[in-house]
């Protein structure tokens, strides 16, 4: 097995072989999840805490299911409404939590880098469930699994990532992962929502040109607060220029798949009929792959955690 990470803080530290290991394991959990009895014991006896410093329904539910199906004791902490509002610093929250001895910690935080900071203060394995505009590694992994299943490979594909690139952790993790796997990545969107250097990818402001010959069209969510004239003039002009409709999608390959991390703004970044078109849209598959990929990630981290603790115990002459 090739997976040497103590935490899953981002895609950046992962080697291509580690990504493949994780996706291969996730495939097995896809099978498990399609059974009536969805139960494995990889996390038996372990405690998983989900800490979401930012409201989330989908991701939190996905992590919760993943942990429960693997037999962990899962606790959700809605941090947004608790100690943070009472003035506790992030590090104090981490230390308090650490004293309760969790084994797996799933964290989402609105600030870039906050999850790494937290990881440096605790003894358990930490999974980044999204930190600010930085990374969202499990999203990129579930997207990769979806692409690999739909296209039969994860190499040499032309992938257009479209929309608010600058503020998107999903875009960042995806383009790192897809770049590591040697794909051709294009970034499509308004210049006001494009990072200055374009991450060294091909950058298109004209969406039709950016989609030309693409195998995968990956749409991003446009946050409501960006639609009001600060970055783009209006939702309707955004849809006219960068919303995915049949006309623009016609420029991509005939078998191109359409992805979206959700939740969608129909009529803003994507036409509802495209989102619902089962021949093109793999948006529901993405959600399904999400649970499997998170199970695989938690499983691999738990194995490394057990191995590490076992080694330490042996050194200290303690039997676990």
């Amino acid at each position: 097995m090739t997976f040497r990470q103590r935490h899953l803080l981002g895609i950046e530290p992962l080697a291509p072989a580690e990504i493949v290991t994780l996706l291969d394991l996730a495939e097995r959990y896809v099978e498990l999840n399609r059974r009536t009895v969805k139960r494995a014991d990889a996390l038996e006896g372990l405690t998983q805490v989900n800490m979401f410093f930012e409201p989330s329904t989908r991701t939190q539910a996905s992590f919760e299911l993943a942990g429960k199906r693997l037999g962990a004791d899962v606790m959700n902490m809605a941090v947004a409404q608790s100690s943070v509002t009472k003035g506790e610093t992030l590090i104090d929250t981490a230390l308090t939590l650490n004293a309760m001895r969790p084994d797996l910690l799933v964290v989402r935080h609105p600030e870039s880098g906050a999850v790494s900071l937290l990881a440096s203060k605790v003894d358990c394995a930490v999974v980044n469930a999204g930190d600010g505009r930085h990374e969202h590694p499990t999203q990129a992994l579930l997207d990769a699994l979806t692409i690999r299943r739909a296209k039969g490979r994860l190499q040499r594909l032309t992938i257009a990532i479209c929309g608010d690139i600058a503020h998107s952790r999903v875009a960042r993790s995806n383009l790192i992962l897809l770049g590591k796997m040697e794909n051709r990545i294009r970034l499509v969107g308004p210049a006001t929502l494009m990072p200055a250097d374009g991450f060294g990818c091909e950058v298109f402001e004209d969406m039709a040109a950016g989609l030309e010959g693409a195998d995968v069209v990956m749409m991003l969510r446009l946050q409501k607060e960006r639609m009001d004239g600060g970055f783009i003039p209006s939702a309707r002009e955004y849809f006219h220029r960068w919303g995915l409709d049949a006309e623009k999608l016609a420029r991509a390959k005939p078998d191109a798949i359409v992805m979206h991390p959700g939740p969608m703004n129909r009529g803003v970044e994507i036409d509802g009929t495209i989102a619902d078109d089962i021949r093109r849209s793999v948006i529901q598959d993405q959600v399904e792959m999400g649970v499997a990929v998170r199970m695989a990630a938690l499983d691999l981290l738990a194995r490394n955690l057990r191995a590490e603790r076992g080694a330490r115990a042996t050194e200290e002459g303690i039997r676990v």
């Binding site: 009001d228 004239g229 003039p233 002009e237 220029r241």
Partner: peptide
Amino acid sequence: LTRGRDGAEMVEMAF
């Protein structure tokens, strides 16, 4: 250039 010439939100330049 901005809505209502208020300097807060850009207009729909493409349209």
